[in-house]
Design a protein around this nucleic acid. Structure first.
Lengths: 194, 194
DNA sequence: GGGCAACTTGAGCGATCACTCAAGTGCCAA
DNA sequence: TTGGCACTTGAGTGATCGCTCAAGTTGCCC
């Protein structure tokens, strides 16, 4: 039996579980059920609940990054790439899905009861994400899509916050059409701003 | 001893505790320590952890509403009132505070592990909040501050999401100046939009 | 002071938490 | 076939969870 494949699958199951239920509300019993692994194997493979959680955050972030890079590569311009990311790669875009909300946003708002490793991991991933956004805005400035005096970092901050705002709204509003409209508005704003 | 005063104080302590730690991560032991009440008294007064949580959400929302109404009454126009609310009454405005993030936003993003009563209460409070925002935008339209074809409900949705986005960003960014700048930007956007 | 109702107390309930480890199982080389 | 090693197993650990309730305390009226 291919162990690494199992571990991989288990990590995906854990990711989904943590995503839907949150860290504190996901018990090891839940994880056992979802992954089919017994507690001993879980601990042999991942070390602890917190480490498994961190791994799931990392995997999620790297997938998001990959999708963003792909869309960027297919797009004609930096801003168009960002806009496509918002429309198609960000979890929110698939607003009919059971969980149309960014995992990192949910995780950030759920205070990790004093576990520094989790806070650090989250901070690292979010900072990295902001940096990527800033990069894309900088490219847009260089390409002449945005005025030269634009502040790429500030634009990145604002986009990060805007996306999080949508995540919040998506969690409480079950009318998918409404969410899609807001996502579309944000994408348009990014594509045509200033 | 004034019992109702004690209950009142205990509810405030519980509010603060739930706000900082989240519902799932706040234990009864924590609540006992913070309120000085023993478990029996806590249950006699509030019924259950979930009910206490709901009460704290309600209290928070009503305080926010009260502040908003006061600022609205002092302002020259509906949009100016909203702008003042963002700048001064919303928790974010006091960005040096230990907890510059709206309680309702945090609570919404922390999935309540299957407790329907909590979900319902949150949904009720947030819907009420959106309705108030929509009212204020409608007043702005009537007062000629916004074009007549403006969609008050849509503007309310957007403001709600924007504020939540700021909450998210405030939680991860410890540079208070940066947060205040973003709060200021949003207030300006509301005051001068379209 | 005696009697009673209202309130407070905290030990302790069963359940569940994150986690461990001795025993069992499966696989392969010798 | 056998010995040994890597991996899996799940009963069990102490701690803690949300919550209860019998016993104790308090304050008030007669």
């Amino acid at each position: 039996m291919n162990v690494s494949h199992d571990k991989d699958m288990a990590l995906d199951q854990a990711l989904e579980l943590f995503w839907t239920k949150g860290y504190a509300s996901t018990s090891l019993k839940d994880l056992e059920r979802a992954t089919g692994m017994h507690p001993g194997s879980l601990y042999a493979a991942f070390g602890s609940k917190a480490k498994l959680y961190c791994l799931s955050l990392e995997r999620y972030a790297s997938r998001l990054n990959q999708m963003r890079a792909e869309l960027q590569a297919q797009s004609d311009s930096p801003l168009e790439g960002l806009s496509q990311f918002i429309l198609r790669a960000h979890p929110l875009s698939d607003a009919d899905a059971p969980l149309p909300v960014c995992y990192l946003v949910k995780a950030t708002l759920e205070t990790s009861q004093g576990n520094q490793a989790i806070d650090d991991k989250l901070s690292e991933l979010l900072t990295q994400n902001d940096a990527t956004f800033a990069d894309m805005f900088r490219q847009a400035i260089d390409a002449g899509e945005l005025p030269e005096q634009s502040d790429a970092k500030k634009l990145a901050r604002q986009l990060s916050a805007d996306l999080a705002g949508l995540c919040f709204y998506a969690l409480r509003e079950d009318d998918a059409k409404l969410i899609k409209e807001m996502v579309g508005d944000l994408a348009t704003r990014v594509r045509t701003q200033h």
